[in-house]
Design a protein around this nucleic acid. Structure first.
Lengths: 128, 128
DNA sequence: TACTATATAGTAATGATTACTATTAATGAG
DNA sequence: CTCATTAATAGTAATCATTACTATATAGTA
């Protein structure tokens, strides 16, 4: 979990704890507000830096939605359903879509390492 | 092609012409630099506004890559291959992936209207 | 040609993200 | 445990892509 020369700080622990306890795909600002409850003096820059590093290390996922980044501690294969009305993001698991995609890419032309699948539409709450 | 109350200006014509003539998925800045060749006094704001409106009207597609927007006049079903090294974006056509995805979503839970599939990896040039 | 609303150029404002720096503290060795 | 090393932090400034604003110009239409 911890990579070489990486130090475990209370800030990192709280950030990852919060991310693992939610499926709301929060922004950096969301994470900041929440971790602030237990570490009031935490800096927004610390949150950004750690989220960026965690994403680069593959400890979390970073998504791009509506011109901003969202973070997700769920590393399992799943795709994202983005509501065009309220902007909420929900998950869809248990699909073989990534195998399907991988088969389609020709390794001679492009070496696939990962994929991001986003479906846009209207969520359950908003269609009422 | 032109929606109600929409006016066709030389700026719009050049923007859409450029987009239709490239598969490089340019940024707004790229479009601006190029259209500037034929309309030197064009404003960057004009490019942004038009790209945004065209995307909203469904005349072009807007992609999100590496924290920025890219534009694509190709409206056919295709997915995007993003190279992690050079950042280039190429297309992959002729896949039934969107049908596949649509079947997986439950209309009772989420009404799917569109999808964006991005594969990350290493492109042909960079793997050498 | 004249009218009206849309579009434009130019510029200012916004806001998310990143960079910077002096200080703090996590880790490992002795 | 104590110390030394250096990654990490808080706080703040800087960046930069995108959006907002406004007076002027112009496309479309009668």
């Amino acid at each position: 979990m911890i990579t070489i020369n990486e130090r475990l700080t209370p800030q990192k622990i709280k950030i990852i704890e919060f991310l693992k306890g939610t499926t709301s795909h929060p922004t950096a600002e969301d994470v900041y507000k929440n971790v602030k409850k237990s570490i009031p003096c935490i800096s927004l820059g610390t949150v950004y830096r750690n989220l960026g590093q965690m994403a680069q290390r593959g400890q979390i996922r970073r998504l791009e939605v509506e011109g901003g980044f969202r973070y997700d501690a769920d590393l399992s294969s799943h795709l994202h359903l983005v509501c065009k009305k309220c902007g909420s993001i929900s998950d869809m698991h248990d699909v073989r879509i990534f195998d399907f995609i991988k088969k389609k890419t020709n390794p001679g032309k492009f070496i696939a390492q990962g994929a991001e699948v986003t479906i846009f539409g209207i969520c359950k709450n908003c269609k009422k």
